[in-house]
């Protein structure tokens, strides 16, 4: 796969149509005449006129900047994770090994954080998708005030995570938080809980708050998907005798695969870096029941100055992000969208 991708990039860049299969077809739909192809090979002048060289000024500067500051930083971080860098001073690059990764496996804090990260990732994604889908289906059924409701549902998405975190910290407050006040008000006071201190509800409370913020986004993605399905699909299913529930389950939802896929990738990547939300709510020590890799990384690196250990956690997070995006990119590549 990588090989063919590379070949595609090269043929696109060099301007010499070296595709062995079929005719020489240009991207504008025309064909390259044989004489033109021949004249590009060989001489010095044509080398300078090749598409590759002439396009350099356009893509090289941004490519270099991206390479240095994004991929360079990622690479540097990976190198630091192989050192023993701690506290003040600078890293010793002479002695690289995987000791930080070994330390991770033996560290119960890391195992708990990794487990929480996976739970958050899966539960948050699934719950947000399901709620988003349900809301999208309801909004799509031609209800009144549809546009208003759509805006209302999407609005949380426009809030900063810091705002959401402070807002939900207040909602969950055991004394005057809205949830407990309402529960006591309707006579369900026994259900009232210290939601974000109780280790058994802490992670669920975080997931619920995040879902509140992101299900609106899922709704928009699903709504676009639903609108793209022709109405005669719904009608054909009704004529075929399917009940509303069965119609959605067997005919409509399977056709929303592309929407699910793209929304899921966005949600999962976000779940991996849900740092700011937790940091605002709990500071850098959310406790073992809610600690995720992102908060742990920050704590190890910037609070405890365990730079190498923090870098190693960051590298693991990066790997997880690749695992999440990888399948998506692969599907896109197979469809020829990449």
């Amino acid at each position: 796969m990588l090989e063919s991708l590379f070949r595609r990039l090269v043929t696109r860049g060099s301007g010499e149509e070296s595709d062995p299969s079929g005719d020489d077809v240009r991207t504008d739909g025309g064909t390259v005449t044989k004489t033109a192809t021949e004249s590009t090979g060989g001489s010095q002048r044509s080398w300078r006129e090749s598409e590759f060289v002439r396009s350099l000024p356009f893509w090289l500067p941004p490519a270099l900047l991206m390479g240095l500051f994004v991929y360079g930083a990622i690479g540097w971080n990976a190198v630091i994770s192989l050192t023993e860098w701690e506290g003040f001073g600078s890293p010793d690059y002479g002695n690289l090994d995987f000791s930080m990764y070994a330390r991770m496996l033996a560290d119960p804090t890391f195992v708990a954080a990794a487990r929480n990260t996976v739970v958050l990732l899966v539960a948050f994604t699934v719950v947000s998708l399901v709620v988003g889908l349900l809301v999208a289906i309801l909004v799509d059924r031609g209800i009144r005030f549809e546009n208003t409701l759509r805006t209302v549902y999407l609005l949380p998405m426009s809030l900063s995570f810091v705002v959401t975190a402070i807002f939900w910290a207040w909602m969950y407050n055991p004394e005057f938080g809205l949830i407990n006040v309402v529960l006591r008000g309707v006579g369900l006071g026994f259900l009232a809980n210290d939601w974000i201190s109780d280790p058994s509800t802490k992670l669920a409370a975080v997931i619920f708050a995040l879902m509140w913020q992101f299900s609106g986004y899922c709704m928009v993605v699903y709504l676009a998907g639903l609108r793209a399905i022709p109405s005669d699909q719904f009608e054909a299913a009704r004529i075929d005798g399917a009940s509303t529930l069965r119609m959605y389950w067997r005919v409509i939802i399977p056709q929303l695969r592309a929407s699910t896929m793209s929304a899921a990738v966005v949600l999962m990547v976000f779940a991996l870096k849900a740092f700011d939300f937790l940091y605002v709510m709990f500071g850098d020590t959310p406790g073992p029941s809610t600690d995720i890799l992102a908060t742990m990384m920050f704590r190890e690196a910037f609070s405890s100055s365990n730079w190498a250990y923090g870098a190693a956690i960051a590298t693991v997070l990066f790997g997880l992000a690749l695992v999440v995006i990888g399948p998506y990119l692969y599907v896109q590549y197979q469809r020829g969208d990449l």
């Binding site: 005669d232 054909a236 004529i239």
Partner: peptide, 20 residues
């Protein structure tokens, strides 16, 4: 009655075949 209780079948202009 809803369509399912009418014992009819319909062919649509766009065919409306389920693509998946």
């Amino acid at each position: 009655r809803p369509p399912r209780d009418r014992d009819i079948a319909m062919v649509f202009q766009s065919y409306a075949l389920y693509p998946h």
